[in-house]
């Protein structure tokens, strides 16, 4: 977005507000999902987190302009994403990394 011209301002402003309204709709859906009668808490939490991820993607893609960002920045972000996934993945894996209980002799 380095070349924003005065003639583009109207459409750019509209796009910002579309993203804003999409995030608001996503937030409303998350709240509705949390209050919904879905009995499985795992399913409910997954649904809420998927909507949150969509909201975050909208903000990152359009408001942070990642969609038009230079390759070098995208490489930095790709490495960040790999480390972040590894961090969360290892933490989740650690829950199952429980030492086996050996009966005393």
């Amino acid at each position: 977005m380095d070349d924003l011209k005065p003639s583009d301002l109207g459409s750019y402003t509209r796009r910002c507000f579309y993203v804003f309204f999409a995030v608001i709709c996503g937030t409303a859906l998350m709240v509705a999902a949390s209050l919904s009668p879905i009995s499985s808490s795992g399913l409910r939490i997954s649904l809420i987190l998927v909507i949150a991820a969509v909201n975050a993607t909208l903000v990152a893609t359009f408001l942070m302009h990642i969609v038009t960002e230079k390759r070098f920045v995208l490489v930095v972000l790709a490495f960040t994403a790999i480390f972040f996934v590894a961090l969360i993945g290892l933490s989740s894996y650690a829950q199952h990394d429980v030492p086996a209980i050996v009966a005393p002799r």
Binding site: T27, M30, V31, A33, S34, S41, I45, I48, L49
Partner: peptide, 8 residues
Amino acid sequence: LFPILYLT
């Protein structure tokens, strides 16, 4: 933060 602390 909002969904994990307030909604789940």
